[in-house]
Design a protein around this nucleic acid. Structure first.
Lengths: 193, 193, 193, 193
DNA sequence: TATGAATGAGTGTTCATTCAT
DNA sequence: AATGAATGAACACTCATTCAT
């Protein structure tokens, strides 16, 4: 029922995601994508202007999913204490990453295609970003250490992504290490004093 | 003086590194490499068995450089207290990363070529690894939090790499944030209690 | 009319056959084939998975032609006497070889590509082969000499192929030496007593 | 002792022969030859003007060996009866082929490189050839059938080469089928009446 | 005599993209 | 919306050949 309803556009994006996860971003070719979806190669160009647009769309779809899943509004709710909101932010990343273990890997892979640095961390580029504002507020309020906030975001993603990968690879059981045992690692790191 | 003495082998590796940093690992082609070095394309195969061997050699050269630069022996010196040795480890990564800002990026990019996860962190694969042993000892001794050590390594690399990239991009001045201001972020995270 | 109706697949195969006959099997390259057909080189791969598949298809097409042309059923007709059927077999090879003088050469050339021996002789590999069964029956019935039947087949092909080549090169007129003058050479050889 | 005394020239030729037998004539490359002999690739050009000359020399060496091994003089000895001399010729081919089972295969392979026909049969090209003269005399004297002599030679080679290959592949035991059982196949074929 | 370094032309193969149907 | 046919450019890799040493 799920697969049936999917637009062909989405099917193509799924194929791209699957290939990236299996063979790395360099492995994506219109031929392979089309074969996987079961359409003609040229058909890909009916839905996407070119290969770059296709890959970009996969990237954007993935980030959008994260944004949709996370309760951004709550993070901006100033009636809640900053430490509490920061914990919520980390928890959301944690939950999402555990539920969609390939999601962060996917984004990372796509980013690596281009030769830039890799300030992944979903939307850190966006100065209006909710998370950036939250963390900046934390710094200003003396709750967090006075350091660039992208260090914090980078730390959060690295720790959680590594943990998720550990779980996925069976190196760590998700009961032995859960959010409550993992969060201190992050919170101790970033909190001031 | 530097360029003149370089063997052609090294020149080719340099070209590969430069391309990876500029265009990502997918951008490496024997044609481009040869053009950059100023030799015939087929010439690449005089020095490297195939493209994979070439890229692998760049990876290994880079890791070797790190190993050569860092004083691994000191990290295993049991007459020095664990917290002190851990600090030394982080400092070495920090110093190296600042001195060779592209080095970690390069390794990360090459790793991403294949569709694996990304347990980069230089030699983390090796169970006998000095760093792994150091951190494991820290956990056992109750100095570090009881968590998988690759979480720690991942954290260290993420923080330092992001910082280095910040400095390189002019987002952070290396005087405003130096090792002494950065280290607490890491130490507070991993230490127990 | 002939050329127009041909599918491009067949045109490509024709080009391969022509090149093999002119330059030997080592002379076949996708570039040359494409140039001869008047298509882009990459186009070859639209019709054939790879070069080997292309050459194999030429081989198979040729054997198929032989099979289609010859009246295999008659050779298995047990109501006809063995000597008569054997003569029919040789006659069929003779007729085919004269009508398509390059056909056997082509098959031989393709076989020689690989480093094997050359048990050419069309389908001699197949133990159920009609011809093998016919000749084996001849041996059993005491009509033919008690020798391995592939010796007979080899002899038949060699004699006829050499004759055909003689005719094609103008060394022999096909009237001076016709089937009736040639057949005794073969029949005397193989018949018992 | 044998290998030690061999000139490098001969070693190179041996390598070529071995490669042809293993991979077919298309598999010969200066790189592979040099590797097999244990010399530098460029070294091949010290002994042979180019690749074609090298392969030709292998061909010629092989034919020369046959000529050296066979007692040509006896074939031309007019004091011996024609049927006897013809039998000697066939026997010589038989003996040589059995002693050097790859020899004929080698010659055949080299011939196939070029796209000509394949009137192999060692020196059949040479009109003064001893064998041609012998067989022609046989025809003239009414001992052999009045047919082009290259048909006879072709037949002789095909039968013997197939037999030799059978033996080499274990399909025929060399005792079950020996010269005396094989010769009638040939003699009955070519003799008149 | 021997080598290693060098190269240009060539190989088979894959690719992103276009277009007529 | 969908396809198959087409193509030029790129790719990794091999080759025969040359030349300075």
């Amino acid at each position: 029922m799920k697969k049936k309803d999917m637009s062909k556009q989405a099917k193509i994006q799924d194929a791209v995601a699957a290939i990236i996860l299996k063979e790395g971003p360099a492995g994506v070719s219109t031929t392979k994508v089309a074969r996987r979806v079961g359409i003609a190669q040229s058909n890909v160009y009916l839905y996407f202007k070119n290969k770059q647009a296709l890959i970009d769309s996969v990237y954007q779809r993935e980030t959008q999913r994260i944004i949709n899943t996370t309760a951004l509004a709550a993070l901006a709710d100033e009636t809640v204490a900053l430490p509490e909101r920061i914990r919520m932010y980390v928890q959301q990343v944690y939950d999402y990453s555990l539920a969609h273990p390939d999601s962060l890997t996917l984004l990372q892979q796509i980013k690596s295609l281009k030769g830039q640095g890799m300030e992944l961390t979903v939307g850190a580029d966006d100065p209006n970003n909710v998370v950036v504002r939250l963390l900046t507020a934390g710094v200003t309020a003396g709750v967090l250490k006075p350091l660039p906030v992208n260090l914090f975001m980078s730390l959060v993603f690295a720790v959680i992504h590594t943990h998720t990968t550990n779980v996925k690879n069976g190196l760590t059981s998700s009961t032995a290490v859960n959010f409550d045992t993992l969060y201190p690692l992050i919170w101790d790191a970033i909190r001031l004093g």
